[in-house]
């Protein structure tokens, strides 16, 4: 019997409305057989953490293009930790300067997926983040 499908929450946090990347990723993951829930735009870290727990997802994929990642991601990590969701992997995407990538990983992001990453590679890396490396 095959393993149950990976469940992913794709989330936009903060005020920026750039959702092109988030939606392409959501669709690529869905086409790869994952169960994808998309939060829609302008979510707070609180709303995203609550949705992740409620939907019992394996991975939260957060997209930010506003430059506010070093404010909002630590908050989200803290909220996920506090809600006891230690097994939910956090993947960050969007416009992220290279030098912020190690910082985000130290904060607890399982992966940081940058601009121009092909959809198939995103699928592979989300699968790896969920602990299901092919």
């Amino acid at each position: 019997m095959s393993a149950p499908a990976i469940r992913v929450l794709i989330a936009k946090v903060g005020l920026d409305g750039h959702d092109r990347g988030a939606k392409v990723v959501a669709r690529a993951l869905r086409d790869a057989g994952m169960e994808v829930i998309y939060t829609g735009l302008h979510r707070t870290p609180e709303e995203v953490a609550a949705a992740a727990v409620q939907e019992d997802v394996d991975v939260v994929g957060v997209s930010l293009l506003s430059g506010a990642h070093l404010t909002l991601i630590p908050r989200l990590v803290e909220l996920l930790r506090r809600s006891g969701a230690r097994d939910i992997a956090l993947v960050v995407g969007g416009v992220i300067p290279d030098e912020d990538v190690p910082t985000l990983r130290d904060l607890g992001a399982a992966d940081v997926v940058l601009q121009d990453t092909p959809p198939d590679e995103v699928v592979r890396r989300v699968r790896a983040a969920a602990g299901r490396a092919a």
């Binding site: 903060g14 707070t44 506003s66 430059g67 506010a68 070093l70 404010t71 909002l72």
Partner: peptide, 9 residues
């Protein structure tokens, strides 16, 4: 809700 975004973009 403005936290982290003031004067940024």
């Amino acid at each position: 809700r403005a936290l982290g975004e003031v004067g940024r973009e």
